[in-house]
Design a protein around this nucleic acid. Structure first.
Lengths: 176, 176
DNA sequence: GTTTTATGTCAACAGTCCTGACATAAATCG
DNA sequence: CGATTTATGTCAGGACTGTTGACATAAAAC
């Protein structure tokens, strides 16, 4: 009997046909919950010491990643209201971590950047988070990391996916 | 020149040696952020309609998963204070979604279960979340799912990992 | 019989998000 | 130029989730 594509696929994947069972999906959901909680725990500690919360981290992260981003641009990424962002941005600005300058073309815009101090703090937060991620990536290996990236990317809504992935992958990275 | 294991690995993995660069780690962190936001968005909508929040979902989920769990056991899993849990559990009990009976051995304990109505509601929430997860799993394929599971599991603290993974993988599953 | 344990509850506060309403300055349109 | 739209700010109020601290009760354990 010839080797059918189905047979070959089965041999290759083992019992992988079961990867869509209710059980696996429930396990996947629980892994998301526990992994995300662990993922945020390290920076959360540092933030709390300085009187900030997770929202401040997100703002610092995306401003650091896209220096000169407008308030509207940041709102778009974060998916929150301007009132919520304002409450986060005000202390960060007052504490000298974030700087805003009027746009050249459009002087209504406030283009946001991190100050030297802001870069240092954001770096410390990123470092804490990266250690955990690096450990997980290293121990899981490159193929697992590729799988992780594929699955997480596909979890994002189809509509927004291209925009988000474009931002995740295409922006400049000063560290390299 | 013979095909060295390294060469074969490189051909297979492409530039996978770079999977631990700062850039990849930052991308991984952003994927976690966006994926988790998407991951919670579907049940969040349903919960909001009924006047509940994400915390109610988590309680319903883990009670449904471990029927007869004690309050202390649930607190352990959720990692919150009893006051926080009480605020979530009270409306769920009043609304007839959660039932609690005194433990047989230890009558101080309140062993929590879902009522018929609670199971129905939890099922609806799970269904909404599972659809997204199933789509991502299906489109990414079994190998990617294995990688996703490995990476997320390894993100959990070493101390708590065994306990958590034991719970994620070993508990009974009524749906199968 | 005293102490510990499992749980409940009241109070106060912090952080993050929301909606609604109104204000200002700059760009843009007609 | 005047009217409108856009980018942003801000005040007010409310909801959800988490915290700490303090105190209460009933049952188990020593």
């Amino acid at each position: 009997m010839p080797d059918s594509p189905t047979l070959r696929a089965l041999r290759r994947h083992g019992d992988d046909r079961l990867f869509l069972t209710g059980r696996k999906l429930r396990e996947g959901a629980e892994l998301m919950f526990f992994a995300y909680r662990a993922f945020t725990s390290d920076p959360d500690r540092i933030l709390h010491e300085r009187g900030y919360g997770r929202a401040h981290h997100r703002a610092l992260h995306f401003i650091g990643r896209r220096p000169g981003i407008s308030v509207a641009g940041l709102l778009d990424i974060l998916g929150i209201t301007k009132q919520s962002l304002a409450r986060v941005l005000r202390p960060l600005t007052e504490d000298g971590l974030v700087d805003s300058i009027p746009g050249e073309k459009d002087r209504r815009q406030r283009l946001l950047t991190l100050t030297e101090q802001g870069r240092a703090f954001e770096g410390a937060l990123a470092e804490a988070q990266r250690e955990r991620l690096a450990r997980a990536f290293r121990e899981a290996g490159p193929e697992a990391v590729a799988g992780f990236r594929a699955v997480t990317a596909l979890m994002i809504d189809g509509d927004a996916r291209d925009d988000i992935l474009g931002m995740v992958y295409d922006a400049p990275d000063a560290t390299e």
